[in-house]
Each structure stands twice: as structure tokens, then as C-alpha cells.
Amino acid sequence: MTTTHDHQPAVPGYIDNKDAQLKRLRRIEGQVRGLQRMVESDTYCIDILTQVSAATKALEAVALGLLDDHLKHCMVHAAHDPSVDLDAKVGEASAAIARLVRS
């Protein structure tokens, strides 16, 4: 699902790390496909769970990288734009952090 937000910077905050993020996501995609093969071949549950944990940690690393880029780029941009509701932007970032913590 794609959402748009008012007063977005001209480029996303992760633009400098885009290639690295894509590389990580492709590696995670491979891990998930490996999980599917493990289930299809009736692999021992604990071995599958170990790989699920690795994929989960890899996704969390991507999320934290995106969050870091957002705070350093998008939030800084918002702080310098008087037309942006900074409280709303802080709330948006806080909600994203809360979703990461609860997962």
C-alpha cells in the first residue's frame, strides 16, 4: 500500500542507501523462498524457526535503517519547512517506532 504525505522532501531519505537496502531486501526474499522450500521438504521445525528468526532480524535491520534515514533526512527537512506540522511529523515517526517495538 502506498500512501502520500504532504510536504515530502523531493527525494526519499533512504536515497543514499537505496542500493544497499535493495540488496538486503533481495537477500531476505531469498531467505523467504528458502523457508518455503524447507516447509515443502518437511524440514525439522526448529531448523525452520531458526531461519525465520534470521529473516525477521534481517527485516528489522532494514526497518531500522529506513527509520534512521527518515529521521536524518525527512524529519530535518520537515523541521526547516515552516508549512509542515512538525508535531504531526513527530507523531508519525513515533507511531512507526512503536510499530517496530511491538513487532
Rank of each mutant, 00 (worst) to 15 (best):
T2G: 05
L59T: 04
G91S: 11
V76M: 06
D85P: 03
A96K: 04
K57H: 07
Q36N: 04
R26H: 11
V90D: 13
V39A: 06
Q21D: 13
A61E: 10
M1Y: 07
L86M: 01
Q36R: 07
A78V: 08
C45V: 05
V76W: 08
A93G: 02
K89E: 13
A61P: 03
S94Q: 15
D69F: 10
Q31I: 10
E29P: 09
Q51R: 14
L64F: 05
N17H: 09
P12Y: 02
L66G: 15
D81G: 10
V32Y: 08
A93M: 09
D68V: 11
K72H: 08
T3A: 11
E92S: 04
P82R: 05
V52K: 07
A63L: 00
A98Q: 13
Y44D: 05
V39K: 07
H5M: 11
L22G: 10
H73V: 04
L66V: 02
Q8Y: 09
A78K: 06
H70G: 00
I97L: 12
E29M: 11
D69C: 11
T3E: 13
A20Y: 06
R24I: 12
R37A: 15
L35W: 00
G91H: 11
D87H: 02
S53V: 03
E40P: 08
V39M: 05
I97A: 00
A79Y: 03
D69Q: 08
D85H: 02
A96I: 10
R102H: 09
